[in-house]
Design a protein around this nucleic acid. Structure first.
Length: 315
RNA sequence: GGGGAGGUUCCCGAGCGGCCAAAGGGAACAGACUGUAAAUCUGUCGGCGUCAGCCUACGGAGGUUCGAAUCCUCCCCUCCCCA
């Protein structure tokens, strides 16, 4: 056993019930929460991201929420830096940080690091994108096949985003993405961690998602989006691509109906939950905890504590 | 009661004698993922299978044909118009 400090991570698909349970748990452990949610970092996006309320945040201190404006770019790299520093502060105070969220990549970065690649270069990306547009589709992919064959082999030819990032890494660092990945291999593990993935049967999760979407709308999602639009945000912003925001922009502009937006939001949120299942399914250290049938935060916490005991015995 | 349109795989919807397990779309399911990740991308989609095939399918029952989702007969159901 190493002398690394421990952190507890509570992950799970949207609407399983992470927030309430983690709040209770954090109070009991007298600790603070570090959010691992790629959308809750944005200020002013409260309803659509199901952010913990002001009251809840007075009860337990939350890190990594409301840290940037919606028009600011914020990458996994930024997240890793900021979240680790928050975690280190909590650890330094002698407590066990409670990481809570559903963004798989953020959690992986937190627990196993990122290779030290270059941050996104807007100009270079624009250049690359233009090159693809001016030539036939697949131009960039063909370029990648030449520059970094191994990376290309792992990227689908249609996945322009990943193709561009691989080229970006190559041109900026004069080193292949595949090489970075091979050397790093997610081996930067600074903490001991217990990663719990809360789940529910889909027959229960999906109705919860629908209910939650209805609640968001009742709580004023549309006017929240309207307010964001009034600030002149482009729909192309990462923040505005968030579930709910991308859907209600059309409603605010009068190009789509409220009913359609609601239906699509429900559908897309379910799909998102499905992708979260896929992600954590192949996260080797994630312990799945089925909380189907448990509706009270107390019950969920009891269930969580039980599995922590079990995993502690195993360690 | 009279006239018209139609019933296709989970849904919508094309097919109108063989090339049809049946276009296309939707939904669903599965997968990938290292600086946009609530994003981006991919695959499957009647069942069985040693992948060659076999079985079940186009409202129901018969019939014509070498061969029918496609043609004929009767029946059941839906929608529209006139009474």
């Amino acid at each position: 056993m190493s002398d690394k400090k421990s952190i507890l991570i509570i992950a799970g698909p949207t609407a399983v019930g992470k927030t309430e349970a983690s709040l209770l748990l954090a109070r009991e452990f007298r600790t603070e929460i570090v959010s691992a949610d790629s959308m809750q970092i944005y200020r002013g996006m409260d309803i659509g991201t199901a952010k913990p309320t002001k009251k809840q945040r007075e009860l337990v201190f939350h890190h990594m929420i409301d840290i940037v404006e919606p028009e600011q770019a914020y990458s996994v790299g930024d997240y890793l830096r900021d979240a680790r520093s928050a975690i280190d502060r909590i650890l330094a105070s002698g407590r066990t940080p409670l990481v809570v969220g559903g963004t798989g990549l953020y959690i992986r970065a937190l627990t196993r690091g990122l290779f030290s690649g270059p941050p996104a270069d807007k100009d270079l990306r624009a250049q690359l994108h233009q090159r693809e547009m001016e030539n036939s589709p697949g131009t960039l992919y063909a370029e990648l096949v030449k520059r970094d064959t191994d990376a290309a082999a792992r990227i689908h030819p249609n996945d322009l985003r990943r193709t561009m990032r691989a080229l970006e890494v190559y041109y900026l660092k004069d080193k292949k993405l595949s090489e970075f990945q091979r050397e790093h291999a997610f081996n930067d593990v600074p903490y001991r961690f217990t990663l719990l993935f809360l789940t529910r049967e889909r027959t229960e999760l999906y109705p919860r998602i629908e209910k939650r979407v209805d609640q968001m709308i009742a709580d004023g999602l549309e006017s929240e989006v309207r307010g964001l639009m009034a600030r002149g945000y482009s729909p192309d912003l990462v923040s505005m691509k968030g579930l709910g925001y991308q859907h209600f922009i059309g409603v605010c502009r009068g190009t789509s109906s409220r009913d359609d937006a609601t239906a699509f939001l429900k559908r897309d949120t379910k799909r998102f939950a499905k992708r979260q299942f896929t992600w954590f399914r192949r996260e080797p250290q994630a312990a799945w905890i089925d909380i189907t049938g448990l509706s009270q935060p107390e019950e969920i916490v009891a269930r969580i504590k039980k599995s922590i005991e079990i995993s502690n015995k195993l360690v």
